[in-house]
């Protein structure tokens, strides 16, 4: 099986740590993951802001880049949902089979215990496009529950949007900030040290607000928690 990593433009540029963690994790599980350098962006920002033509160009570029792979793994629920849910609306043909990381681990590799160690109190935000777009369900929390040392605490109002929404966060700054304030209120109620999600764009928004408020809560991508082992934690 040929497996490619679609890192996503946001992770590639701003969160290389998530990509490294995903590669480390997949290799630890015996997957010879490849990285086609021609990849750039899935086109979600353009499409969702109203620039369909640009988005179609990027979507075609994406399908060409990942043609021939049996599976494309993306550490981003929203970019995976763009390919799977929105490309068909753009009449894109031969769409590669894209999985969010948790889907790939649970459905393809059939593992929930990835041998990770992370001795911290963690709460999980499911993110809208993973939850309602891809419908990943309990896969991420099933994975987290098997992490040694990790205490998973439920997040009140978990299924509610954090208010990121791509350019929405800038175009409707006040509503976005109000939504984030409520999300953060719920995060603080859990007493968790770490807020985990499978999408760094949402974490960029929530994490940026948490940091501005000097809340002391860290945000981490699911891949980074699943990649940590007892050796790496030392």
């Amino acid at each position: 099986m040929r497996v490619a990593l679609f890192i996503t433009c946001v992770n590639d540029t701003l969160f290389p740590g998530t990509g490294k963690a995903a590669v480390g994790l997949l290799r630890r599980l015996g997957v010879d993951v490849e990285f086609p350098l021609a990849q750039t962006c899935c086109g979600q920002m353009h499409l969702n802001t109203g620039y369909r033509d640009e988005a179609v160009k990027l979507a075609n570029r994406f399908t060409e880049t990942f043609a021939g792979y049996d599976a494309v793994v993306a550490p981003s629920g929203s970019c995976a949902a763009m390919v799977r849910e929105q490309y068909p609306h753009l009449d894109i043909e031969d769409i590669p089979k894209v999985y969010d990381l948790s889907e790939f681990l649970v459905d393809v590799l059939k593992v929930t215990d990835v041998g990770a160690y992370f001795p911290h109190k963690v709460t999980y935000h499911p993110t809208c496009h993973s939850l309602r777009g891809l419908k990943v369900g309990d896969r991420p929390t099933d994975l987290l529950k098997m992490v040694r040392g990790l205490e998973l605490v439920p997040l009140p109002g978990a299924e509610e949007c954090c208010g990121f929404g791509g350019t929405f966060a800038v175009k409707n700054r006040d509503v976005s900030a109000a939504m984030c304030a409520d999300k953060i209120g719920n995060v603080m109620k859990t007493g968790a040290e770490v807020l985990c999600a499978a999408d760094n764009s949402c974490l960029l928004h929530i994490g940026g607000t948490l940091r501005r408020q000097k809340s002391g809560v860290r945000v981490l991508h699911l891949a980074e928690i699943l990649a940590s082992t007892e050796e790496s934690a030392e």
Binding site: G17, A21, G24, R27, R28, L220, A227, A233
Partner: peptide, 10 residues
């Protein structure tokens, strides 16, 4: 690559 160190990230 090794799994990165969450303690150091971000």
């Amino acid at each position: 690559p090794v799994g990165n160190l969450p303690q150091e990230s971000r």
